[in-house]
Amino acid sequence: MNPRGPLTFALGLASALALGWVAYPRLQYRSVEQPIQFSHKIHTGESVGMTCAECHPLGDDGRFAGLPSIATCEPCHTETQGTTKNEKHFVEQYVTKGREVPWLVYARQPENVYFAHAPHIGLAHLPCERCHGPHGGSDQLRPYQENRLSSYSRDIWGPSATRLARAEWEGMKMTDCSACHEAHGVRESCLTCHK
């Protein structure tokens, strides 16, 4: 046997793993910055003290409002709050002009998925953090990562390429929904989550 064999094999394996775990995820996603930097922490912190539902409410008809419109921001932001360039830009470009901010939604589901917040909040009483993580305390908006092939948000797969050792809220794949449904005895069929 060629004595260089094992070495060649090890090198080949290492480069294959590096390609798959490091290079490919970089190739697969493109990063986009949010139009405005927003701090959840300031809004949910003691001085302002807002709750999640104040900006992301669930209506009586079961429709979830998703992201707040500029009208929600307006009462406080007609005048510039603080001195950051970011805030100035926000007020001048969006609040004053009455334009909506084109936020990039991390948790946006693919078009063939039906998801309603209502049963998860009203029946299962899940806290927001169960699926969205503790971003209510975050100071920054991380870049939005879009899959170049499917154009899905990276949050669907989750930040870990291997999906090993991930937090409870990381990943929103079909298997993740199903695992929780199964654990809680939810009767499932295709139409439960697809439309």
Partner: peptide
């Protein structure tokens, strides 16, 4: 959802309306 070329589709008793009714009840 809208359907792409090359797949089959059919009536599902307006399942989206059932989902909406279900969400309303759940809320």
């Amino acid at each position: 959802s809208i359907r792409m070329r090359g797949v089959v589709e059919k009536c599902n008793f307006c399942h989206g309306r059932w989902q909406a009714a279900k969400a309303k009840a759940a809320a």
